[in-house]
Design a protein around this nucleic acid. Sequence first.
DNA 1: GCCATATAGTTACCTACCGTTACTAGGTTA
DNA 2: TAACCTAGTAACGGTAGGTAACTATATGGC
Lengths: 123, 123
Amino acid sequence: MDQTIQQLEVWCAGEDWCPVTATATLIGKKWHTVVLHRLLAEGPLGFNALQDEIGGISSKVLSDVLEDLEEKRLINREIVNEKPVRVEYSLTELGASLESVILEMAEWGQEHLTAAEKDGSIA
Amino acid sequence: MDQTIQQLEVWCAGEDWCPVTATATLIGKKWHTVVLHRLLAEGPLGFNALQDEIGGISSKVLSDVLEDLEEKRLINREIVNEKPVRVEYSLTELGASLESVILEMAEWGQEHLTAAEKDGSIA
DNA sequence: GCCATATAGTTACCTACCGTTACTAGGTTA
DNA sequence: TAACCTAGTAACGGTAGGTAACTATATGGC
């Protein structure tokens, strides 16, 4: 505990950039994280499949998020020449390396938010 | 690797809520994460101290973020009766429990963004 | 009293992002 | 031809994020 907090201090002390700020700038948006999570968990997915998996995201917002994630080199967009021409979204190596972060968020949510979400005390 | 991905699948399969979505809804905003990080690393801080520590955040946005984090019960706002009346922001137990997530983000940023940020290839 | 400084914000304003609904567009199947 | 699959885009409105200036309260110095 003290060890890790020490680490956090060292990383940001007197620096003009901070790894947390940088990471938060990159993936610090609700849908970005969720999209990465689904691609991690379910593997490469098409546009509609991804939208169905996520649930509650509109095609416009998903389209925007995918474009942004591609720009940031976290996902690949590949056009597959099959019967109905599909598009397959998958994680880049950089994107896949975020697994530890996503997993930590998943564990934290599981531990701390289950009950709260269900009775609505944290909205 | 396979183990952890298996976990991610199990947690979200067929559920109407997902711990990642829930967590991302709670802290999936750039400044929220950064504020929590500074409070973790530097301990309780006043308004101006926090603003200075973060750098690049306006007082209006910081004010909004602090209000939101307090509503979500991740931080405490305590008025300290000293010479100039101060306000001290600190983490709640729930907020402090996010250390593992923040730490993971810090480690990831340190490993994957340092070079990229410096040469601007990820903006 | 008057001014400067330090505390912690607020107000007005603008822009950019989020979200909803509807619609587009190419190709396949019946 | 029409229905249905794929993957989006267009138009529009509301909310959040961001900037710059300003408020408010209290302390200490002149």
